[in-house]
Nucleic acid binder design. Structure first.
Lengths: 304, 304
DNA sequence: TCGACTTATCGGATAATCCGATGAATATCA
DNA sequence: TGATATTCATCGGATTATCCGATAAGTCGA
């Protein structure tokens, strides 16, 4: 007859609650089964662990002496078991991430590829969607976390800054702006401007109006997707404005980009997750990898 | 299905020996039972702990990671179990006993010496104190148990009779009372009486008054300690009365003692412990040794 | 004095564990 | 190359351990 973990857990539960009945409830067994466990443990050890009366129990001297020791041992063991569970979940987890279409086709494939090289059994599911729906998908639990530009504060959603980057002008090689190191917003008026529809551009207009007290974005054309805008720029139909996390796509279209100044207007991007909810080990791990990638790539401008 | 200690011990045995068959032998079970234990553990954890081939096994990465942690946990647990076994086997332990000063310098040193001869690893700590404070020290848990004369009944304190002995007269060799086999209380009035102060003597007076309906103790001198009274008797200043558990001290002073009769008045001594509380193995063992000593020595009058 | 509460014990039902035999895979040797 | 030895996994039946619900005994409070 050996000491069992069940007996030890029963001992700790009784010692903590001071009651066989309460301890049995906490372990989801009947009081009589718990009585048996403690009896077996006392018999195995050959000592009395509790002094019983019909109304209260007390740890014996020996019981009092070993309680902290057994408590620590069980805590250590549960720590190991938690660690194993984490490793298991990380090894075989699924991570669902929502991101706007532009991030989904630029930044994220690279991050996912790097992560998958190290964790081949973790399944990263990327859900590309409209900017406006990222946070609602996070909130509903459809995804583990989302990426996107600044949204209205929401107590249900935790927003952690991922990066902050300035707007850039995008144009074809040989364009009049190519010789410039930087491009002023005012210089854009000489060229047909192609912008994206929606809140993103509306907020940019507000920022420029505030900073310049005159002038405004006056797009010749508005389109839905950045890939459309870049195609039109490549066809010589105008210039567009873009944030450099999408530099890989700009390069794919063989276009040039320059920082926009006077004023320098930036946009901040965040990782959104549900407030008060922990991520699975795999999701947490991928999130960390994402932050690591951004920390290393910084301005997104310097490599192939 | 919970993790069990048997599974964990099996894991360590296999990891150490690198073989299911050898590990099974070391645990005194068949190889097939051991196979089942490891299988259950792997299923409970949801991870592979060993990579098997038909001729050799290897710890998996996870198995290698948790091996030292589980090894330490089992070592800690075995340390606690050894500790308990040592306490049980009286290979260690501390016993704290409270007794009045007179018992502390007569009866108890002999009992302790005899007990220590048999259990050299048990530490007996004797706390000599006033008669009145013995039970309060027991109640507070400062000591494991206490000795002393009858106290008022108290539901928190358990009192077990240790011995009951008659009062004796004590006088120097050559004294007028030496030729007597017994001494009557009435014979004491012819000699200056030296008594102890306090409740002990007050209760004796009540007992004598009840038994004799006349007369009373009329001490010429009262002192605090029996050793003082015995010194004065040895100096020829009178006689004193004493209970024969202190015979060793009487003999040290080279005094004689005789039973007091007409009436025979006795005093009962008890072992006091906390009601509803168990004693540690060492305290219980020493308590039993004490009762054994008293049973053997009976009247405390017959030996060097 | 009765009702409420607590721990211990009992008998029967159920679950877990073990053994010995066997199978599948691999390595070694003549 | 075939025979033999070795190892871990699986199986079915026997045995052991565990649990539940009912009940008993003791204590406390209204």
């Amino acid at each position: 007859m050996n000491i069992t973990l069940r007996q030890l857990r029963a001992f700790i539960a009784v010692a903590r609650s001071g009651s066989f009945t309460l301890a049995a409830e906490s372990l989801f067994i009947t009081q009589s089964a718990l009585s048996g466990l403690i009896k077996e443990l006392e018999q195995s050890l050959g000592v009395r662990l509790f002094d019983r009366s019909t109304r209260r129990i007390q740890l014996s001297d020996i019981g009092r002496g070993i309680y902290p020791l057994i408590d620590k041992i069980l805590a250590d063991l549960d720590g190991v078991l938690d660690e194993v569970a984490n490793l298991k979940a990380l090894k075989k987890g699924v991570v669902r991430v929502a991101a706007p279409q532009l991030m989904a086709c630029t930044l994220l494939p690279e991050v996912i590829a790097a992560y998958r090289a190290e964790h081949p059994q973790v399944d990263i599911r990327l859900i590309d969607c409209a900017v406006e729906s990222v946070t609602s998908r996070v909130f509903s639990g459809e995804v583990d976390f989302g990426l996107g530009p600044e949204r209205d504060p929401n107590s249900d959603i935790d927003a952690t800054p991922l990066f902050e980057l300035p707007f850039h002008a995008v144009f074809p090689p040989g364009h009049a702006l190519t010789a410039r190191e930087t491009v002023r917003w005012a210089d854009l008026v000489d060229h047909p401007l192609i912008t994206l529809q929606g809140q993103f551009t509306e907020r940019l207009s507000v920022d420029l109006h505030t900073a310049m007290r005159e002038g405004d974005l006056d797009p010749a054309t508005t389109v839905t997707f950045m890939s459309t805008a870049l195609s039109m720029v490549a066809a010589g139909l105008g210039v567009t404005i873009c944030i450099p996390y999408a530099a890989s796509l700009v390069r794919l279209y063989r276009l040039d980009m320059r920082p926009l100044v006077e004023p320098v207007v930036t946009r901040r991007f965040y990782v959104f997750s549900r407030n008060g909810r922990s991520l699975s080990p795999a999701a947490q791990s991928f999130r960390e990898a994402l932050f690591g990638y951004v920390a290393r790539e910084g301005a997104f401008t310097g490599h192939p």
